[in-house]
Design a protein around this nucleic acid. Sequence first.
DNA 1: GCCAACGTTGGC
DNA 2: GCCAACGTTGGC
Length: 153
Amino acid sequence: MNYWLMKSEPDEVSVDDALAAPRSTVPWTGVRNYQARNFMRDAMKVGDGVLFYHSSCAEPGIVGIARVASTAYPDPTQFDPKSPYFDPASRQDAPRWLLVDVQVQKKTRNLTLPELRADPDLQDLVVLKRGNRLSITPVEPRHWKTILQRLQG
DNA sequence: GCCAACGTTGGC
DNA sequence: GCCAACGTTGGC
């Protein structure tokens, strides 16, 4: 079992939006970065742990615990000319972009970015690395454990 | 709104 | 294959 941190802009899909969806599950649309896509395609397994992270907002941070709820499948928004995620270069018979379903298990307090940065046990967390813009990053088991502890404490 | 950092594009 | 220009991300 692997662990992941997945960024979402709360203006688009917040943890509350995801909780309100059927089965608290949302398709993770809009990933348009090859490295992030490859994580979903090659490394994610159903049941993997997910830290639901709010980005590009007033208080960025981890706001929920979720799980990977499907294997990777084509992101339909790449074929929708009205979608901001439309990719005219992608073909139906060779989809360029994939997504997975993510099921929120629990909303948590906001474990904020400043808190994460200040935590001596989380210095190597990938999402904290300088200049990191990846919307999906792997989380080491020891970091997952630490973060769950901080959320309970 | 600013801008550092990074990914992608395209001319050569 | 190089790399400058450009676009995007995302914290501040």
